[in-house]
Design a protein around this nucleic acid. Structure first.
Lengths: 224, 224
DNA sequence: GCCAGACTCACCGAAAACGGTGAGTCATAT
DNA sequence: ATATGACTCACCGTTTTCGGTGAGTCTGGC
């Protein structure tokens, strides 16, 4: 009897986890050996356990799926990782693959794709769901037409959070909560000038144009 | 043999739908008779079909779950509706119940709650998952402490989208995409003054303070 | 001890956002 | 025909945001 493929599922929605587990359990070659609701739980779990494949949601509280991916990549663990995306974040795919993601499926695709992805990835073949592929294609087309071959094609950008200081993150959260600079200064008991400084640093670091961009970043990474 | 409870499931994530269906099918008293990926699909489906219970996600493209709820409420159809929330939007619960929602569960709760909710609601008892109850409680506490009995406790606020004009929605989407007023004016081929007018109308209508508030609204309602 | 980095603040100017008011066209419905 | 609402634009002033530059303290690490 063949050894089953051991899978760990991580997503902050318990319902989704249960759904995926129910689906995977119908396949005799796959065995779900664990699950996590936050990025930290994933990291903790893998300290004392092992799985062949980690199905990892990008959007999770505490520790971003992207962050988790990076950590595992640094530590050079051997389990394969399939990323799960809520909002078809095609632009991230390229960077995420450089961090060691072996597969990529969007939640809008059907569940059978997870089974396919797991089997494909387990046998060493990267898997991308059709809509992700299409998105990548469109992105490539658009890029070629719009900007040709760019000099510095932002290799990071996936997880800039780690580059932010504590104070910057505080300010970022408040900006994303609709507070103005004077209001933020009041709350943090610092000068408006200082808050301005943080805002500008954030704009640069996160490569966005304005407060809306900051807010969107915060949302994307579940900081609020 | 007893008649099964007919359920229709609506959510924009196919994986989640499949998960829920798989879960519900394990219960012999429940039968899933249809599913939809968008609000419009839900409305269309119910034109020619019927179900006892509609499990309805709040966040869906095309037509908001809240909008769908309102429409069904107006038309006074008799199926019960259980709302599904991604982000524990406790503040909506009160308003949604006035629109005829019979139950409320957050996706972060376990899947068995759906089965419980369906059976409870089918027998006429409204169902709220524990975390929603807790949230409502905290909200009540917080409100009483913080603001006492407010004069006008914003009865709407749940679905303000329907009050927005097409042009306003266009501008809203662009604001939420980090575009500045001049840039939006360029794209829509109208004056910056006009764009400013729309921005101000949006701020009033959506009751937010600034561009970040507009962006957050757009995100919350999946307009981008 | 020295350096890097985090945190703090200031001053400058330009651009954008916000708040209010008024007003014109056009289509639709009553 | 008239009234309503969507769409458009203008002008006013104030506040906020953004961009750049410089500089002080304090802490932790080498």
């Amino acid at each position: 009897m063949k050894e089953k493929i051991k899978v760990h599922v991580a997503d902050d929605h318990m319902i989704l986890i249960e759904g995926i587990i129910a689906m995977l359990n119908t396949d005799s070659e796959i065995e779900v050996v664990g699950h996590s609701l936050t990025g930290l739980q994933v990291v903790e779990w893998f300290k004392t356990n092992k799985a062949d494949i980690l199905v990892l949601d990008i959007n999770m509280p505490e520790l971003d799926g992207i962050e988790v991916l990076k950590r595992f990549n640094k530590k050079a663990l051997r389990q394969k990782i399939i990323m799960l995306s809520s909002y078809d974040d095609v632009k991230l795919v390229q960077e995420l693959t450089t961090y060691g993601a072996d597969g990529f499926i969007s939640k809008t695709s059907a569940g059978e794709h997870i089974v396919k992805a797991i089997k494909s990835v387990q046998s060493g073949i990267p898997y991308f769901s059709d809509d992700i592929k299409e998105g990548l294609f469109n992105l490539a087309i658009g890029q070629n037409v719009a900007e040709g071959n760019r000099p510095d094609a932002t290799p990071e950008d996936a997880s800039l959070i780690s580059e932010l200081t504590d104070r910057e993150i505080e300010v970022l959260k408040l900006v994303a909560s609709e507070y103005s600079t004077p209001e933020i200064a009041d709350q943090l008991l610092i000068s408006t000038n200082t808050v301005e400084t943080y805002r500008k640093k954030l704009l640069k670091k996160l490569k966005v144009k304005n407060a809306v961009g900051l807010a969107m970043f915060a949302v994307k990474h579940r900081m609020i």
